[in-house]
Computed example of a mutant assay.
Amino acid sequence: MTRRDSGRSDPDADTISEVGHESFGTLANGTRLEILDALATADSPLSYADLFERSSADDRGRFNYHLRQLRDGHVRKTDQGYDLTQSGVWATNILTASVLQQGGERPFREIDSTCGNCASSPVEIGYRDGEGIVRCRECDRWLTRFDFPPGAVRNLSLEDFVEAFAQRTRRYIGLADAGVCPFCSHRMTSVLRPGSATRSDSLPVAFDCSGCSAELRAPLGLVLSNRPRISATLFERGIDLEETPFWEHGWCTFSAPTVSRTDPLLVTLEIPADDEDWTVLVDENVDVRELNC
């Protein structure tokens, strides 16, 4: 299971509040949102006339006012016409993803996949309050849950939702493992943290961000699945996580590592492949010490 926990106090909360108020205030108007949408969906910069025509504004004076509010922040004027700045691109991406909307659900549906814990099939995928959730009814367990943009949930087919959720979750964990926060891009640290377990994973990898105060918890197997040496070895043994969702593999979601030594901490994770087990020895900083296969 993976999750994001942003419940810690933020030392820069006042700064974030001030900047956020200014940024969201600039976008708090229907005409301005129409301007951003028109530029985001255009194949090239738009002239003033084209931009005005694509909006619902019927008064050029008011339209000019709203366009000025976006200038030099989200919109720039070039020799070719009006275009989005990078902050304008980020703003439209956030709006398209609908990540600021409350709630949102997608009923659980059976999918052509198996449970990595009990090997039953099919399992189910659904969406609640900003998170994709994969669960197994047979063993009554959640196989994984993680952030997912509600905008995509509404538009993707079931098959595409499954693939996008599986790959996005792995990529986010991989980015965190590389030391980059997948949410704000600040520095992220990782450590095996005994005692912070949830359900099946007794030694999760804990990621902490120095910027947005995001916290991630992920099974060791899921973290290791993104390492080039591990993924290459898996591929050689017929396990391709680009083709099969990670929750189909017990070592990736449910298998807890075995403590080999406590001071300093060393743990061993067994990964079954080709009808035999191979082992990975990892230290408390999640560095691979040995790979025996």
Rank of each mutant, 00 (worst) to 15 (best):
R199G: 04
R137T: 12
R145S: 03
R171G: 09
Y172D: 15
N226V: 02
R229C: 14
R199C: 01
E215A: 02
T198L: 08
T169K: 13
R171M: 09
P150I: 03
F146P: 01
D129Q: 11
R154G: 06
L224F: 13
N226L: 13
D160V: 07
G126I: 10
L175W: 09
L192D: 07
L158Y: 03
T233N: 12
S185F: 02
F148M: 04
G174I: 05
M188V: 12
F146T: 09
C184Y: 00
A218I: 03
M188N: 08
G132I: 13
V134F: 10
G151A: 01
T144P: 02
A218E: 00
F148A: 08
F148E: 00
A197Y: 12
S213K: 02
A206G: 12
E236Y: 10
G174M: 14
R154D: 15
L158K: 02
E215Q: 03
G132N: 07
A166S: 12
G130H: 08
L216A: 05
V191Y: 08
P194A: 05
R193L: 13
F161Y: 05
W142T: 05
S213Q: 07
S190G: 14
C184S: 06
L203H: 11
E131T: 05
F183T: 12
V162C: 10
F183R: 07
R217M: 09
G130Y: 09
G126H: 10
V153R: 02
N226Q: 15
G211R: 01
G174K: 05
A176S: 10
M188G: 09
S210D: 10
M188L: 10
S225E: 08
C181A: 05
R171C: 09
C139M: 09
L216P: 00
S213Y: 01
Y127G: 00
D160I: 04
S185M: 04
R193T: 12
R170A: 14
N226I: 01
S202W: 15
N155G: 04
L203Q: 02
L203A: 00
P182M: 01
R229L: 15
S190L: 14
A206K: 08
T198G: 03
R170K: 15
D208P: 00
A178F: 08
G179M: 09
A214Y: 00
T144W: 10
R170C: 15
T198H: 04
S200G: 15
R135V: 13
D177P: 13
D129W: 07
V162T: 14
I230T: 13
R217P: 01
R187I: 06
R187Q: 13
F183I: 12
V134D: 03
L222T: 08
A164N: 03
R199K: 13
G211V: 07
E215T: 01
C212K: 00
G195H: 10
A206Y: 11
A164G: 03
G179R: 03
R237K: 08
E215M: 05
P204C: 06
A166D: 09
A176F: 04
F235K: 14
R141M: 04
R145I: 01
R237H: 11
